[in-house]
Amino acid sequence: MFAAEHIELAGLVCALFLTLAIFTRLIGDNKLFRFAQSLFVGVTSGYILALVLRSVIWPRILLLVQQPAQYWYYGLYFVLGLMLLARGLRKTNALANLPLGMLFGIGASVTLGGTLAGTLIPQTRALATPFTTTSLNTWPAWALLLNGVLVLVGALAVLGAFRFTLPSHSPVGFLSTVWSWLGRTLGRGLIMIILGALYAGALVSFYTLLVGRFSFLQQTISEVLGRLGI
């Protein structure tokens, strides 16, 4: 039997090798990278499959077998689940329409309820409330009001960039045209600011990941060398 420290050492060497294999992509596409990438796909999907079987499906199978009278509906879920798996075969794929229909119906209604109650209504209400962060509380009243108005105009301008279709030859259509113009000008400018903020956030996030990997390489190399007595 292997000692625990040997297993850990093998793990560290394996992790080091796989990290470096992924980083070889920087010098171009190569077989080492392809190997690591395929291993990633295989092991990760295997891990997730095992997790789903063990956490979601298996406990419910046990309950169904142990107390069928109480958990009879799990049997129904499993039949629907098997029908969903039939999607993988050409001859039987129509069977999956029923569970997919249920999934979409449930998903759409949950999304509808959640979006209305969690985003649309609270965010619209927040638009009407001149908002201030804690540090802005020291501002004079006119500045707070101006801030609130700017928030309202800014949000409406960005919303105008969506261009929901309305007939252009009605009073509502005229408003729609004005709103669209606001969207094309101020709205577009604000969207560029957001994109800049999101891009900066993405760069900071990826930078942190790279620093983390370099730190891992530094620590692991010194640990492996130390354990090997080099």
Binding site: T111, L112, L152, V158, L159, F162, I191
Partner: peptide, 26 residues
């Protein structure tokens, strides 16, 4: 609070309206 908060709110509202419409269509 202002450029990001306001315009992101506009984006969220637009996306929420889109999600509501898409859900209703389904």
């Amino acid at each position: 609070a202002l450029p990001v908060g306001a315009s992101m709110r506009g984006l969220l509202l637009g996306a929420a309206i889109g999600a509501v419409v898409a859900s209703l269509r389904i």
